[in-house]
Amino acid sequence: MEQLNPVDPYAAPATQVAALIGVLFISLKIFSFWRMIASLFFIPGQKLSTFGPKGSWALVTGASDGLGKEYALQLAAKGFNVLLVSRTQAKLDTLASDISSKYKVETKTLAMDFAANNDKDYAKLAALVKDLDISILINNVGLSHSIPVPFNDTPEQEVKDIITINCLATLRVTQLVTPGLISRKRGLILTMASFGGVLPTPLLATYSGSKAFLQQWSTALSSELEPHGVKVHLVQSYLVTSAMSKIRKASLVVPTPKQFVKAVLGSIGRSGGAQGIASTGAPYWTHAIPLWAVEQLGPMNGFVLKVNRGMHEDIRKRALRKAERDSKKAS
């Protein structure tokens, strides 16, 4: 008599559970995608007026060029007085004059080199901040490597400057401002981060690590200050036309500072492409979608890391060839 194969009584339920998990996983990814789309294009961010009235102050670091300059201009256009802090007094004076004449708001300036980490400079800033109703802090000052470089070959001074400017300066300025925000039970601390802090970036290792630090610090600070009515928001960005990126021509993927800052200020509190990253937004759509993909497709991160390394190795080779050509021309 032919023997029948025994039936596993657990096979069907196990298969059903696996299918259910698969459907749930895919459904969550689809929900996350459409949540990102809604955040980018349909749901507005918090109004800046919730952080402070017109006539209160915004402090912008790295204010004389690029994104910092654009933050100052757009905040002034919305009625905020601006305290401009950057390295070059002449640039600050020009920007302050332009803002005052165009937007009829008050301006103050302080020239300080954040790389110097000079206590006297911070004392001057503390004196300025003490008597101002600061509603918004834009932690924009930052420094990257001059060209992509292996960590072992990174000049010691470049390492120190990147950590001092990106990390220590951000902490010290924020610590000067937070007591006033807490006492007034309102305000916004906005810090500029980078994709390099989300996805480790070979040949920009020190810069990448400094931006990852800002991500963790900002998220923790957000939880601390939430009970006091103070909003902490970290902005993730890719390339923008600026002196730091060394890109002069805008494109679909690379916006101008004006385009990018407009997207940021219109989406405070919205996550955009930074789904699942607390207190963080990626507001510009051509930056947001790639970030979302990297975050959601975790198994692909090893591949992306290799591509990232190859890209920066190529950039380094081209930069070194250009430096060699310039050296020959000079001689």
Rank of each mutant, 00 (worst) to 15 (best):
L132W: 04
K249D: 14
D113S: 09
G269T: 03
K246M: 12
I37Q: 09
L59N: 09
S183K: 14
G187L: 00
D133K: 12
N118L: 03
L291A: 08
L73F: 00
L83I: 00
F42L: 13
D8T: 06
G62V: 08
T94Q: 10
S194Y: 01
L171K: 07
R309D: 04
D131R: 09
S222Q: 12
V198M: 09
A72M: 00
G310Q: 05
V85Y: 01
D8V: 02
V105L: 05
P202H: 06
K185P: 01
N118R: 06
S327M: 11
V232M: 07
P53W: 00
T61M: 05
I163G: 03
A169H: 02
R87Q: 13
A38C: 10
L204R: 15
V307G: 12
D121F: 04
G273H: 01
I138F: 01
G180R: 07
R184H: 10
S210H: 14
L132R: 09
S267P: 00
H233S: 06
A116N: 09
A319V: 05
K306W: 14
L40T: 09
R172V: 04
A282Q: 02
L188S: 00
G209W: 03
R87A: 05
R172S: 04
R309Q: 12
A243I: 07
V85G: 05
G45W: 00
T15H: 14
A19C: 13
Y238V: 03
T201P: 02
A330Y: 13
M1D: 06
M112A: 12
A263K: 10
G79H: 00
I37P: 02
P257V: 06
Q3W: 08
D326M: 15
P13T: 11
A250S: 15
L181W: 03
A18V: 10
A96D: 07
T15Q: 15
I315V: 07
D161R: 12
L95Q: 00
K104T: 12
A288Q: 06
L128T: 06
G302P: 10
V198G: 03
D314P: 05
F31V: 13
V23L: 10
V23A: 07
D314H: 13
L137N: 08
T191Q: 03
T109E: 06
K102A: 14
A18E: 11
K328T: 13
N139S: 11
S218F: 00
G229R: 03
I26P: 01
K317M: 08
S27C: 14
L176F: 01
T256C: 03
N118E: 10
S267Q: 05
K47R: 14
W217F: 15
L320G: 03
I165Q: 00
T94F: 03
I289M: 12
E226T: 12
L20T: 13
A18T: 08
R184N: 06
G298Q: 10
D121E: 06
S97P: 03
